[in-house]
Structures are given as structure tokens and as C-alpha cells.
Design a protein around this nucleic acid. Structure first.
Length: 295
DNA sequence: GTCCAGGTCATCG
DNA sequence: CGATGACATGGA
């Protein structure tokens, strides 16, 4: 009793480039990549569903051993579309990049690369908090520990697949243990609890965010929670909601990339950064992602 | 040893 | 308001 379905993408698309974008760290445990296939598990409707994604016929094939209901399949399909931003047409973005001599190499270098999203809003926000002010290597170690302790796990086709913990679970996280044994700072733990609290109470959710139409109002709702600053708010809007205009201002990687490409001369020149992004209207998030990837 | 990482908040002056 | 220190640790 298996379910398999096909999701078309809008060319140009490169699954290979996306897999490169997906690979962040050997400590990544929310998915596994091997042999041009991605393995992951999701909770759909109280059911743990491990699945596999690979490229097939100008699209992605999604396969699982579980027989999914129509609603479950719809949810899984939306997740994958969101994860790889399958439906976006990148050609206008490439046309824009080619207008800037300093970015003209990117359409060739990263041809077909999509923003690799984090469709789960809670996961995206927690990840932004974990990653605050520490190097990514260490951030991945911290995330791995949190997921290993509090997330569900399932073995499938030779892969150990972990799920990001639920807000209800992280609300009860053991601050003393995570601080003393797992190297979390007290402030990170406090922020993770604040965010969990907001999700459990319903103060914050993907649906609630989507009901708000103004971009700035979405930022405001996010930053009203202690631990989510403007960087994290924009990061979440970019990675979880695929908002094209989200720019994680203040991001050191972004600043570094702009400096490397001689787009800014002074890393602290916020006006220059703002002015640069005004030339990328509608494609700000993609520009950021491509700049990160160029590092 | 120093400096900085995909920051944020509280507490100043 | 803008500036400054605390947070917690690893890697360069």
C-alpha cells in the first residue's frame, strides 16, 4: 500500500543545485540526502509518514510506503512544493541579475537553484533562534541535540529520520540539562520557550500570519515575541512563508557577500545595503539566498 | 590569546 | 533615541 505522486516544476530548475543548497552540515538530522534522493519524515494527521523525493520527468517524484488519504497527500504535496519553491519562474530574477555587472555570474553559477525553505514555521523560528550569534557548525550541533532529545524518530529504508519537536514538547524543555550538558545559552532556552508558548497559546501560527496582509504587520507580530528580533522575523518570513520581499538585514553572511562582490564598501553602511535591495524589488529573498550560496 | 559567528534584549546615558 | 554589555562556545 504505497503512495507516489508527481510534482512538476517550472524551469529552469536544477535538483542537483537544490541538493547542494540542502546540504548544510553532517549534523543535519531532519533529512538525509543520498544518491540524488532526499529522505524525510513528517507528521500528517497524527500519522508519522517517511517519504522520499527524487527527480523524474521534469518534476519531483514523492514516494512513501504509507497509503495516504487525499488530504494527507495534499498536505505532503504542499510541503514539498514549499520546501523547493517548485512553482516559481526564475527567469525574471535572472534577467534582473544580469542587469548588474557584479551579479551577472550568478544565473550561470547557480542556474536552477531554488530557495530551500523551512515550511514549518515553528521549526524555522526555532532554527533562527538557535543560529543567533554563533557559527553555523555549532548551531547545527545544538539543533541536533534538541531534536535528538525532544523530536520523534523513525527508521525507514536504512535512514534514521527525525522530526522537529512540537511546541507543546519544547514548552517543557529541561533548561538546566540543556544549559549544563548541551551547551545552550540561557537566553536561547528562554527564547525557545517564549516561542513555544506563543504557538501553544495560539498567539502565533502560520494561519495567523497569513491572515495578516501587510508585510510590516507580519514582522510586528513576530517581533512582539521576546527572542524574535527583526533578523529572525525576516528569516522566518523568507524561509517559511516564501515572502519574496523578506531581507534578513544585519545578517553577517549577507553583509560579507555584498562586501566580497564590491557591492558595498563599508560593512556598516546600511543605506548602501538598502539602496542595493531597491534595485532587486520583488526578488530580495532570492538575492539573499543566492548571495549566501555564493559564499 | 583575540576576534567574530546567519542576534537579541536589558540597561543605560 | 543610540551605545554597550551579557550571553556561550567553537573555529580561524
Amino acid at each position: 500500500m504505497a503512495t507516489s505522486f508527481h510534482l512538476p516544476y517550472t524551469p529552469p530548475f536544477s535538483f542537483d543545485k537544490c541538493l547542494q543548497g540542502l546540504y548544510r552540515s553532517p549534523d543535519e538530522i531532519l533529512y538525509q540526502v543520498s544518491d540524488a534522493r532526499v529522505f524525510r519524515a513528517l507528521r500528517l494527521d497524527h500519522q508519522l509518514v517517511p517519504f522520499m523525493i527524487c527527480e523524474q520527468d521534469a518534476g519531483l517524484k514523492v514516494e512513501t510506503d504509507i497509503s495516504l488519504s487525499e488530504a494527507q497527500q495534499h498536505e505532503l504535496s504542499a510541503y514539498v512544493q514549499n520546501w523547493f519553491d517548485l512553482e516559481k519562474d526564475l527567469l525574471p530574477f535572472y534577467a534582473l541579475l544580469k542587469q548588474n555587472p557584479k551579479l551577472i555570474h550568478l544565473p550561470d553559477q547557480l542556474a536552477g537553484l531554488r530557495i530551500i525553505g523551512i515550511p514549518d514555521l515553528f521549526e524555522a523560528i526555532c532554527w533562527s533562534i538557535i543560529g543567533q550569534q554563533i557559527n553555523l557548525t555549532f548551531a547545527h550541533k545544538l539543533k541536533r541535540r534538541l531534536v535528538e532529545i525532544y523530536g520523534e524518530q523513525i527508521d525507514w529504508r536504512g535512514h534514521s529520520l527525525h522530526l522537529f519537536p512540537q511546541p507543546e514538547t519544547l514548552l517543557e524543555l529541561d533548561e538546566v540539562y540543556l544549559h549544563e550538558k548541551m551547551q545552550f545559552s540561557r537566553s536561547k532556552l528562554k527564547y525557545l520557550k517564549n516561542v513555544s508558548e506563543a504557538f501553544v497559546s495560539g498567539e502565533l501560527s502560520r494561519e495567523k500570519l497569513l491572515q495578516i496582509h501587510e508585510f510590516e504587520d507580519r514582522q510586528k507580530l513576530l517581533t512582539s515575541i521576546k527572542g524574535i528580533g527583526i533578523w529572525s522575523a525576516n528569516y522566518a518570513l523568507m524561509k517559511a512563508l516564501n515572502q519574496p520581499e523578506a531581507i534578513p538585514f544585519g545578517d553577517t553572511g549577507l553583509t560579507q557577500a555584498l562586501f566580497n562582490l564590491n557591492i558595498i564598501e563599508d560593512r556598516k553602511d546600511e543605506a548602501a545595503i538598502k539602496s542595493f535591495f531597491e534595485s532587486m524589488t520583488g526578488w530580495e529573498a532570492y538575492t539573499v539566498f543566492y548571495l549566501w550560496q555564493s559564499l
